[in-house]
Each structure stands twice: as C-alpha cells, then as structure tokens.
Amino acid sequence: MIPDDLLYTKTHEWVRMEDDEAVVGITHFAQSQLGDLTFVELPKVGDTVTAGEEMGSVESVKAASEIYSPVDGEVVAVNEELADTPEAINEDPYGEGWMVRVRVTGGQPSDGLLTPEEYAELLEE
C-alpha cells in the first residue's frame, strides 16, 4: 500500500507533484494506525505552509494527531468533502482522501522527502 509514484515524509504524509503543485494526504499506514477518522482540521486556501510544520490535524475514535506540511508553499485548494466524510481517508487515502493542494515555493520539494523505497524501509523499522 505504498504507491510508487508518490513521495513520503517520516511523519506519514504523502505528496504527489503535479507541475508546481503538491497534492498532500496521509498514508495508508497512518490511517490504519489512527483507526476510524471522525474529524479533519485543514488549513484555509491562501494560508502559507512550511515544510515540517503543522498545517492541520486529524482525529479518530482513539487519537488525535497533527498533519505536517511536506513542502513550503501556499494552499490553493483543500478537500472540503472531508468535513462531512472523513472516512474517505480510511477508505481511499491516496485518492478521495487527499487533503490539500499546495503551490510549492522555494527549493526542490523532493529535498528531505522519502522515496517509496525509503518509506517502505521506514515502516519496516
């Protein structure tokens, strides 16, 4: 459950680069650890996010945890559907469960991000 066309973070977010925009969500592993999600708090369109810093949070029946931005940039879209259907993150973390779309500024987004192979190794540890 680690698609090979994505990049990852050590904090279990995934990134799909589409030109200069990054689509971000949390991984299959993250959702399976959290359990049934009940609430998602996302940044607003227009907010500035910074790689490695908190940009929102997810809440499940047993825990709440922060979502960290994998990239520097400006939020250009958020998945409004998640407000009513947070379970989309459990059911389809890499598709319907996407969270934000960020227009990337600054350096190469791949800096500091993990390849699918590296992320797989992280999970094995």
């Binding site: 609430f39 949070s57 499940s60 047993k62 709440a64 922060e66």
Partner: peptide
C-alpha cells in the same frame, strides 16, 4: 475526547 489532555497532551 480527542480534544482532551489525556489523549492530546500539550495540544
């Protein structure tokens, strides 16, 4: 309860 300190600690 996920808002509360026994789950969310400092947050």
């Amino acid at each position: 309860q996920a808002r509360e300190q026994h789950i969310r600690r400092a947050k």
